[in-house]
Design a protein around this nucleic acid. Structure first.
Lengths: 209, 209
DNA sequence: GCTTAAATTATACGCTTGCATAATTGCCAG
DNA sequence: CTGGCAATTATGCAAGCGTATAATTTAAGC
């Protein structure tokens, strides 16, 4: 059989996105070493040579995938801001609770995040992405903390809110990790409760659960 | 040249340990995909075939390396317990501070930890190791929290200390991650201060910094 | 010193990898 | 409808991969 497989052309953005998605799938399923050119191409429904048309090297594709993932994780918590109450205190509580429960809590996302994170100490670009996404999240949290404090008539100096944001962000990350990896160790709703209660202590605020 | 390279025999434990160490070095330097049989052997100062003498497959060696790493990380915080004050409150403060400062805070250790962590969602053995080490650390922390609360004359019911340990552990993990990855974002001693202060709030204890 | 078990080196194998290149085909503009 | 650009498939290459196996050397016991 000499017949070529029929194909349809796609826009560049669609192709790049599909390749990036396929890469993330491969990594999630088999770790970084599973993201071979052939595996990615197969997952994306194209042939291996196509990757080199859209990305100079496989390494560039993998880097783009990691960057997409980190950005997406940061946005996951922001995606539902519209659904939160307008009241700053309740808004903050909702934000915190969402960050430690599904769908943000997710084993696959955690695995991908860890795969990206191991690159940070040795890849300058990945490190820059991590720093940017960390600061973006933390700053958003700090803003919400400041709003909640002010709404409760408590002091919200930048030095104070910064420290609260650093600690709060760390707490949320740590809870997110364990909730994603070992969900059966915790009762339903327990993580949300622990997170919100801990924040209430840190901020000396009465946060609704 | 037909000359074989001269060699010395070593005890099995020493060989296995050297191979495991070499594996961790490879992963730390180049990620999971860099831990090839040849790279590991070279790093360990042996030839590739030796790996198969001590481990059935390369995969088994990599798994042993990850397990060693996770166990070692848990023990890193315990290693200096002897140096801490006997007073339960000061002891807890010291434990917390140490967990978020060097040498526990370390980019290489973080990178290796992340590499191990990405395996947890899909490798039953790795997951079991993670669960065991997580619970070991958390339980130790819980014990120290309980001791400190009692020393301060405060209630230390198991339900309460468990929640505190979950939150406290998460906080420490989160701070450890960012202190390891982005140290230049924080002032010297700042993480220790933030961690201890946050714990003081969580536990409603006066912890010495 | 000699023998022997086994640790270790050296080499080979089939398969896989990222990348290169040529040919074909889809689709748009004229 | 036709021609041409370029997206896409197909194929190939050199290097590297994990594993297998044979040969050599070390070192312990007698």
């Amino acid at each position: 059989m000499n017949a070529r497989r029929p194909y349809r052309r796609e826009a560049e953005e669609a192709r790049r996105a599909a390749l990036i998605e396929a890469t993330l799938d491969c990594i999630a399923e088999g770790g970084p070493q599973a993201a071979t050119v052939r595996a990615i191409a197969l997952k994306a429904g194209v042939t291996p040579g196509l990757i080199r048309h859209y990305f100079a090297t496989k390494e560039e594709l993998v880097a783009a995938a990691h960057e997409t993932l980190m950005t997406r994780l940061t946005e996951a918590s922001a995606a539902r801001l519209d659904e939160l109450p307008a009241d700053p205190v309740a808004r903050l509580a909702g934000f915190i609770g969402n960050a430690v429960t599904p769908p943000v809590v997710d084993a696959r996302a955690l695995s991908l995040w860890a795969a990206s994170l191991q690159l940070v100490p040795r890849d300058a670009a990945m490190r820059a992405v991590h720093e940017a996404t960390y600061l973006a999240f933390r700053n958003r949290l700090e803003g919400m903390i400041a709003d909640a404090l002010r709404a409760a008539g408590k002091p919200a100096t930048p030095a104070r809110t910064r420290r609260m944001a650093i600690a709060g962000n760390a707490l949320m990350d740590g809870l997110w990790i364990e909730a994603s990896l070992l969900p059966e160790l915790f009762e339903s709703g327990e993580m949300r409760s622990i997170a919100i209660h801990a924040f209430a202590r840190l901020l000396d605020l009465n946060l609704p659960e």
